[in-house]
């Protein structure tokens, strides 16, 4: 059984429709797929399509007017509030999307130490140093405030923070947005390494071309629904092995495949 399993997960927001009646606006609908240990699954969808909401739903940090439907299972158990409180930071960790997820007034070293405490580890200077070294970060980066880090450094810093509790599941929310090719590859290679170490990794991204080289499977989203789940190796040639026409259209639309717009997108 998959380590992380989504069972008909939906995310919506309630809004007032008129004065009294509340209506739910569904953004994600009926998502069902799993991520195994040792596997990197890429969730691909258009920007602004609500992919990040799924990450926030797993970690329970959606705004209060959000409604989450379906079930999320972690290691065979349904994730509810008490279990989430126990698992967050320890068994499952989030790599957030942007620099704004680091406290602007606190040096990175301290934020790592806090993440450690939250995961139940007391980190000393040496263990912080060796953790950072794994992500190519030095002492200077540790003593910096978040705004002093470059985009790539910030992303690696957040990956280091996620790795503090040695989690079994890593959810990376758009970890390559705003990075150049080299930095993106670096970040994704780190995630791949985690998967190879036996962790379950869910990579949420809008960039199919970047994800393919590192992912085992690709979950393709279209308009808030799961279109299909494809093996990464099936994105080859003309995409004949792909199960859904939408995935094939995405594949053939990539620059290296001559930008073919296809006819089947909508």
């Amino acid at each position: 059984m998959s380590f992380l399993r989504l069972d008909q997960v939906s995310v919506g927001f309630t809004r007032y429709d008129g004065l009294i009646r509340q209506r739910e606006f569904r953004i994600l609908e009926g998502l069902s797929f799993g991520v195994d240990r040792g596997e990197l699954v890429a969730l691909i969808g258009a920007s602004g399509g609500g992919k990040s909401l799924l990450a926030h739903a797993i970690f329970g940090i959606l705004p209060s007017n959000a409604v989450v439907g379906g079930r999320i299972h972690v290691d065979g158990t349904t994730l509810d509030a008490p279990l989430r409180q126990r698992y967050c930071g320890r068994r499952m960790a989030l790599v957030p999307q942007s620099l704004s997820h680091l406290d602007p007034m606190t040096r990175c070293r301290k934020q790592i130490a806090w993440a450690g405490q939250r995961a139940g580890h007391r980190l000393n200077a040496v263990s912080i140093e060796s953790l950072l070294a794994r992500y190519g970060l030095d002492d200077q980066a540790a003593n910096a405030f978040p705004h002093q880090l470059s985009g790539g450094m910030a992303r690696r810093m957040m990956m280091a923070i996620a790795a503090v509790g040695d989690p079994d599941l890593i959810v990376a929310d758009e970890p390559t947005s705003g990075l150049d090719g080299e930095n993106s590859a670096n970040v994704l290679a780190h995630l791949r390494e985690q998967a190879d170490c036996g962790k379950a990794v869910l990579l949420i991204t809008h960039s199919l071309s970047e994800a393919l080289a590192f992912a085992d499977r690709v979950a393709v989203m279209k308009g808030g629904r799961l279109e299909s789940i494809e093996a990464a190796s099936d994105f080859a040639g003309g995409g004949e092995a792909l199960r859904s026409p939408f995935a094939r259209a995405l594949w053939t639309a990539l620059p290296q495949n001559a930008f073919s717009a296809g006819g089947a997108i909508c």
Partner: peptide, 13 residues
């Protein structure tokens, strides 16, 4: 409600 407060919650704080 800031991103870094949410992230702290996601770390189990």
């Amino acid at each position: 409600q800031s991103d870094f407060a949410l992230y702290a919650r996601a770390q189990g704080a």
